[in-house]
Amino acid sequence: MAPLLEVQDLVIGFPQAEIVHGIDFHIDPGETLALVGESGCGKSITALGLIRLLPQGAAIRRGRVLFEGMDLATASPRQMRDIRGKRISLILQEPMTALNPVLTIGRQIAEVLRRHEPISAAAAERRVVELLDLVGIVEPQRRYHDFPHNFSGGMRQRVMIAMAVACNPRLVIADEPTTALDVTIQAQVLDLLDGLRRQLGMAVLLITHDLGVVAQWADRVTVMYAGRIAEQAPVGAFFAAPRHPYARGLLGASVGHEEEAHYTTRRLAEIPGSVASAAGLPGCPFETRCPEAIPACGIRPPALEPVAAGHRVACVVEAARTGANHAAAHG
């Protein structure tokens, strides 16, 4: 199956600093890919870079973003406008501020329909009411004329989802869609998004730092660290046996609810140091914090090497260990 979206050697930077240092990943049609990492690792910038809505000053410096036979990294602004909202849509983190406070939500959803489809205002309004109903908003006909401040955070995120799926896109980029919501609402919103993904056959790029969310809603996971990809794996394989020391550290730093352990009874494991320690080093960005670092780590950034089917890791130590296992198995 040909991937829906393929990112090749993508480099994104501000004039003073490079943020994303050449990453490769792909998204298959209809799947949910989780992009995981801590704040500042470049995951949001990567997502915004895909549809070229980067903040002022940031720009794609190198690489390709292949989507439906087109390279989005070099597409014209006009081509990008035809794709945004229609083929690829975006859900932002903060539903409180992502909607325009002075326009009714009905009008804001109708806007995307009327931009991409030749339908009358009346037909657009009917479609919007259907969409509001689809995302579980009660009395959609009446709520059409309400303003964002009349909705709760979870309801606003439902409005954002209605807006995102209005034109039946192939890919929805959800940038931490539930970080601003409390946990019960979080599950409802993600269930809704997942249901719509199946129903409408779209793919979802789910950006998050919450491994619980990844385990429950993603098909595959890509872990980013300091602007590079550390590990890529199917969700099952990742949670069963994470291969990158950073990914192992992340899993060690979280507590599953089914476990006996709790932060009140046992100290959570932590990863020593901070991301900033990677700045300016020639080698693996995780080297200074890594419990398994060897001298070879400091030479150059490790390449992403396959360690199993669909499972790739950027770690010198781990690649050597896999190679040795293979040699032992075959020798």
Binding site: I51, L53, M80, R81, D82, I83, R84, G85, K86, S89, L90, L92, E94, T97, A98, L99, N100, P101, V102, L103, E111, V112, R115, H116, M160, M163
Partner: peptide, 28 residues
């Protein structure tokens, strides 16, 4: 503001975004 990015993500023309989404907020 975030809603300006939302408007851009709908594929609207920059002039439309400025007029419909930015100006009305700025007039307050």
């Amino acid at each position: 503001q975030d809603f300006m990015r939302t408007a851009a993500a709908k594929g609207l023309h920059p002039a439309v975004i400025q007029f419909r989404h930015a100006l009305r907020n700025a007039l307050i």
